[in-house]
Simulated scan of single mutants.
Amino acid sequence: MPLIVYTLPNWVLGLALVALWLVAAQALCALFPDRWRERVTDLDRSVVLASLGVIATMNSLLLAFSAVSAWEAFGSADTAVQREGTAITQLARSLSLYDTAPSRLARERLRAYGRSVVTQEWPAMLQDKPSLSTRDALDGLFTALGDLKPTTSSQTALLNQAWTQANDLLTHRRERLQASKAKVPRTLWIVVLAGSLLTLVPLAAAPKGASSRCALFAVAAALALVFHFVATMDRPFLGSERVTPEAIEDALGIVQRLSARTP
Rank of each mutant, 00 (worst) to 15 (best):
S94C: 10
Q178W: 06
N167R: 13
Y98W: 11
W71N: 01
G114S: 13
G146Y: 06
L141W: 05
G85V: 03
M125R: 15
S76H: 02
Q155C: 01
Y113M: 11
S154F: 09
T89M: 11
A137E: 09
A70E: 00
T143N: 09
F142L: 08
T119F: 08
L148F: 07
W163Q: 09
T151Y: 04
T79L: 09
T134F: 03
R83F: 04
Y113A: 12
T134G: 08
A124G: 01
A70S: 13
M125I: 08
A77C: 02
Q127K: 07
A77F: 00
E175D: 15
S96I: 03
L159Q: 13
L110V: 08
L169G: 12
P150E: 03
T151A: 11
D168L: 09
L170A: 15
E72T: 06
S180W: 03
V117C: 02
Q161W: 10
A87S: 15
L159T: 07
S153V: 13
E175Y: 07
K149S: 14
A112C: 04
S116N: 09
T143K: 08
A124T: 05
L177D: 06
A137I: 07
A144Y: 05
S103T: 11
Q178Y: 06
A112R: 12
A162T: 04
R83C: 02
S116A: 15
R104Y: 11
P150K: 05
L169W: 00
A77M: 00
L97T: 13
T164Q: 12
A101M: 10
G75P: 00
T143W: 05
T171N: 11
E72G: 00
L138F: 14
T89N: 10
E175K: 12
Q178C: 01
T143F: 07
A124N: 13
R93W: 11
R174A: 13
Y113E: 06
R135N: 13
R107F: 03
S131H: 06
A137F: 04
N160G: 15
A101I: 14
G146K: 12
P123C: 03
H172Q: 14
A77Q: 00
G85H: 04
A80M: 00
Q161S: 14
F142M: 07
G114K: 06
K149Y: 09
D128C: 06
T119M: 08
T164I: 11
D168F: 04
